[in-house]
């Protein structure tokens, strides 16, 4: 599957554990406009299990999430 949407803001959160990965995600959102897209790289395990769930709860929309060859995840989120 190819992703045609590109991120307006990108954050590589590889190696950033919970909950600091969510804190940094929220800080990134705070500097973005509604409708803009945030691209994240999240570790496998708790980060990919928790961060998307939390951003959905705050009303943002997950556009895609796919696992990369190194096991980390690429996630695209549209800001509410």
């Amino acid at each position: 599957m190819t992703t045609t949407i590109t991120a307006d803001v990108f954050q590589d959160l590889k190696g950033v554990g919970c909950p600091m990965n969510l804190v940094k995600t929220k800080v990134a959102f705070s500097k973005m406009k509604s409708g803009q897209v945030l691209g994240l790289i999240l570790d496998n395990g708790p980060p990919i299990n928790n961060v998307p769930r939390s951003v959905i709860r705050e009303g943002h929309e997950i556009l895609s999430q796919e696992q990369l060859d190194d096991g980390t995840w690429s996630v695209l989120i549209r800001k509410a």
């Binding site: 909950p19 600091m20 969510l22 804190v23 940094k24 929220k26 800080v27």
Partner: peptide
């Protein structure tokens, strides 16, 4: 600061 105030920011 992000770490110090993380529980508020969350």
């Amino acid at each position: 600061q992000l770490e110090r105030y993380s529980r508020h920011i969350l």
